[in-house]
Write a protein that binds this DNA or RNA. Structure first.
Length: 329
DNA sequence: AATGGTATTTTGCCTGA
DNA sequence: TCAGGCGAAATACCATT
C-alpha cells in the first residue's frame, strides 16, 4: 500500500535534509544596506543603530526601517568576548528548529587535515547513528505531541480511560501508517479519537469533537476519512439507540420510558426507516412516542430542546414509531 | 399551552465536470 | 475543488384541541 512506501519516503527525506548545511559559513555583511545610495537624492546613507533604521545623510529619508542581522553575531565583532548569542538562525522547518547536531561529510578533520582511513570509517558510522537518532527522536516527539493532544481532548469530552487507551492505539497505528503525512498531528489525533468514539457507539457528533480540537472541520473530516480507510476500521453508522439513554436521563425519565423508547427504535430500525435520518432526531421522536405510551407527560418542546432537535422533526418521526408499536401488539 | 399541518428556507451530503 | 441537485431538517406561520 502506498502508505508503507510513503513512510520510507519520509525517512529518506529526513536523511537528505539533515545533510544540507544548517548555517551559513559566510554571513552576509550588514554594511551592504548602508552603502546603498538614497533613492530620493542619491546621497550617502547611514545606519542609525539605536533606532534600527537606515537614513539618508542629506535628506533624512528613512531608507529602511528594519535592520535585522540574522547572521551569527560573533562575526560582526572584532573581539570574541561575548559569545552568548552565537548560533545558527532557528527555523520551524525542522522538528528541532534546526538546532540538532549535524556531523558534516568529507574526509577532513576540523583543521582541514586528511583523516586516516580508519578514522573516516568511524566518522561514517557516527554519521549514520546520529541520523538514526535524530529521525527516531522526531518520530517520538511527534507521537508524544499527538498523544498529549489526544489526552487533552479526551479530558474535555469527559471520555473514559478505556476510550483514551483505544484512541491512543488508533493514533499510533495511524501515525505509523503515514496517514498524518501532509497534515497536522492534531488532525490525525482528532480523527483517531473520533474514530474510536464512533466505533464504541458513544453519541458524540463531529461538532462535539471538533469543538475541542484546534483544527478546522474540513481537515478534521478529511483526516477522519483517511484514518478510517487506511486502518480499515469498521465503523457502523450512528445508531439512534445510542442517544436514547442519555436523553431520557437528561429529561428525568423513568427506566420504563427508556426501555420503551429503545424498543421503539429497535422496531423502526428493522424497517430501515432510520437510514439517512438524524439519529438524534429519531431518538427524540422515540422518546416522545414512549412518553405517549407510558403516559409520562413530556412535551415535544422539552424533548426537542434537550436533544437539540426541532419539534417539527419530532412530529415527522414519532408517528412511525407509534405505528411500529401498534404492529408489535 | 401543546400539538398538528404546511409552505419556505437552510443545511449537509453527494455527484459529475 | 466547485457548482448544482437533492433529501432532510429547521423555521415560520396558522389552525385545532
Amino acid at each position: 500500500m502506498w502508505a508503507v512506501g510513503g513512510a520510507g519516503d519520509k525517512q529518506y527525506m529526513s536523511q537528505t535534509t539533515s545533510q544540507q548545511p544548517r548555517h551559513r559559513t559566510e554571513p552576509e555583511p550588514t554594511t551592504d544596506d548602508t552603502e546603498r545610495p538614497c533613492p530620493e537624492c542619491n546621497g550617502r546613507t547611514r545606519e542609525d543603530p539605536k533606532r534600527g533604521e537606515i537614513v539618508c545623510e542629506d535628506c533624512s529619508l528613512v531608507v529602511s526601517e528594519t535592520v535585522l542581522d540574522r547572521g551569527p553575531e560573533r562575526h560582526d565583532r572584532d573581539d570574541d568576548s561575548d559569545r552568548r548569542r552565537v548560533g545558527a538562525p532557528t527555523t520551524k522547518r525542522f522538528h528541532d528548529e534546526g538546532l540538532s547536531t549535524v556531523i558534516g561529510g568529507g574526509d577532513c578533520d576540523a583543521n582541514g587535515n586528511r583523516m586516516s582511513a580508519r578514522k573516516q570509517r568511524r566518522m561514517r558510522r557516527l554519521r549514520t547513528w546520529n541520523t538514526r537518532y535524530v529521525t527516531q527522536n522526531a518520530r517520538e516527539r511527534a507521537l508524544q505531541f499527538g498523544l498529549s493532544e489526544l489526552d487533552r481532548m479526551a479530558s474535555a469530552l469527559e471520555l473514559s480511560e478505556t476510550i483514551r487507551e483505544t484512541a491512543s492505539v488508533v493514533f499510533r497505528r495511524a501515525h505509523s501508517a503515514g496517514v498524518q503525512r501532509g497534515r497536522s498531528l492534531e488532525a490525525t489525533a482528532t480523527a483517531a479519537l473520533f474514530a474510536t468514539v464512533r466505533r464504541d457507539g458513544i453519541p458524540l457528533t463531529i461538532e462535539d469533537v471538533a469543538a475541542t480540537s484546534r483544527i478546522d472541520r474540513e481537515s478534521f473530516e478529511r483526516a477522519y476519512r483517511d484514518v478510517v480507510r487506511e486502518l480499515g476500521l469498521e465503523i457502523s453508522p450512528p445508531d439512534p439507540a445510542d442517544h436514547v439513554p442519555g436523553l431520557v436521563s437528561a429529561l428525568d425519565g423513568s427506566d420504563a420510558l427508556c426501555q420503551r423508547a429503545l424498543s421503539l427504535v429497535d422496531r423502526v430500525k428493522a424497517t430501515d426507516y432510520h437510514v439517512g435520518k438524524h439519529p438524534n432526531g429519531l431518538a427524540a421522536a422515540a422518546v416522545y412516542a414512549a412518553t405517549l405510551i407510558e403516559d409520562e407527560g413530556l412535551t415535544q418542546a422539552e424533548i426537542g430542546d434537550e436533544a437539540d432537535i426541532s419539534v417539527v422533526t419530532i412530529r415527522t418521526h414519532y408517528t412511525a414509531m407509534l405505528e411500529a408499536w401498534r404492529e408489535d401488539r
